[in-house]
Amino acid sequence: MLTLTSIRLLFFVATTFVLASCTLGAPSLKLKDDVIENTVTWSGEVWIDGIVTVKKSGHLIIEPGTRILFAPRDVDGDGIGDAELLVEGSLTARGTARDPIIFTSAADQPKPADWKYLYLDFARDVELDYIVSEYAYSGLQVHFCRARVTNSIFRYNVDGLRFSTVNLFAAGNRMHDNQHGLRYEERGSEAIIHHNDIQDNEIGIFVVTRSTDRAQIKENNITGNRQYNVKLGWQQPGDVTLPNNWWGSLAPDAVEETFLDRKIDVSLGHVSAPEPLTGPVKVSDWQKHEGATP
């Protein structure tokens, strides 16, 4: 028989557990094909083995230091993991320099494309600050929405940061050791991309197609990318202008050698790098420059 004392004790334990879950974060929250339709806060460790969707009405808030681990499951056998976080509503992921928010593979020996992507599609409101996204097909894909991405790291992915048809502000980020550091199909995008390190990828910037040279990509360090610093895709006949960047060299010929453009394939546009910087920018100084205030 339950006594009043034992009931009180049980109630105390239950309440304590609930409060701990809300304020300190439940360890190892495990999700599959879940849908978020209200305001939800993640902290601690979150495992995703499926597609988690933040619907239009939903707002996902991720606390500093949260680790989101994606199961490296590839059911359709296309060589790309199936797990993803799809955001159609709002996402606020503000880490700190000391406690970044980490999106990564749950594999013991992780590799690029273990999971699909953090995908912003017609999202309502997105702010990403001090996140690390790694071992995905795309560390971050942004389509048909406005997004602000700062102080973050995209590494060990096929595509570090990828966008099309967006209003994107990206500053203070580091994209390294991806197949493509930055990849985009402009399609009318309003993109301001400055004070980023786009270094040590296979391809620094991959302009796939439909670019009308509107994206403002300036005052970045675009150096040391193993195949090309800039590559135009097969269907990019228009020119691409990338002014005021640091290319790792002051010799124009050496800089141009790192572009795959019309000089290799006459059907492509020309990549130009007017007024190159004479030294690297300090990425952490991005807040002193254009677009720092939303």
Binding site: L10, A14, C22, D33, V35, E37, T53, E84, Y119, D121
Partner: peptide, 23 residues
């Protein structure tokens, strides 16, 4: 009380689909 714990530590579940690139 126990039901409350379960509710607070889980999210609603349903299937969704998203755009998948062709390999």
């Amino acid at each position: 009380s126990l039901l409350l714990v379960l509710m607070m530590t889980s999210l609603s579940v349903s299937s969704v689909s998203a755009c998948v690139g062709k390999t």
